[in-house]
Amino acid sequence: MDRVEILKTYKIYIGGAFPRTESGRYYVPVHGNKQLGNICLSSRKDFRNAVVAARSACGKWSGKSAANRSQVMYRIAEILEGRKSQFVQELQFQGSTKSKAEQEVHASIDRLIYYAGWCDKFSQVFSSVNPVASAHFNFTAPEPMGVISICAPEDSGLLGLVDAVAPVLAGGNTCVALASEGMPLCAITFAEVLNASDVPGGTVNILTGKRTELLEHMASHMDVNGFLYCGSDEEEIRKVQSLAVENLKRVSISTSEKLLSSERQNPYCIEDFVEMKTTWHPIEIISGSGSGY
């Protein structure tokens, strides 16, 4: 007799732990007439808890040195590389062909590596020392924005999520991401990858569920600083933009076009989720030539 396979329970990822949704609800995404599993139908309370976790992780993640963040992100890629086959299987299970699935996994790993490399470089590209007319040293440098809501693309289970999360992380932010509703499996498996790497708990939180339920709360929560919306549903975009006004969340809209293309890779995606801070300090004027004081 064949061995009986152990089936995987997909849970959500909050604060470095894998709880079930507090609501106890589930939904069953399907591909064709195949059921993908019992997936957590996260509630607004799950989202709220995730924001609390993300906020408290802000210091832990942004407080790491940029070089260290870079290594942690590299570590995510390393672990993803080691679990390639699991992701390929899941992608196939969700309807992809083997070669397309492999392509997507490879691109996801490479994207992580790409943004891992930016962690300790982007601020050099976007900073400036400003030659002010007065006797002051003046510089402008990016700082993390804080907690970002991410609505991952619907049509790409893994790469879409990685493409959204990586630049946000590279910028030193923490996030709460809502996985693709129809293809949520890789998102939760990716959470396991994050959990196995050295990402502090709460830095990335991943929920599964329905945009129709959660989008509103993700956009309106007063303790969220930015919103990355991936998709092109005009009504949803409108909703996000209007609700974001309440605390002036920075909203960025990203389509899921050309996800595989290297055109998607650029530090301007990081710049969307940083704040530029300008600092002034006086420069004492006593010169070696004895011009006096």
């Binding site: 007065s134 006797a135 002051h136 006086p282 420069i283 004492e284 004027i285 004081y293």
Partner: peptide, 8 residues
């Protein structure tokens, strides 16, 4: 003492 502040 901050010299620049004195200057201001």
């Amino acid at each position: 003492i901050d010299q620049v502040g004195i200057g201001d």
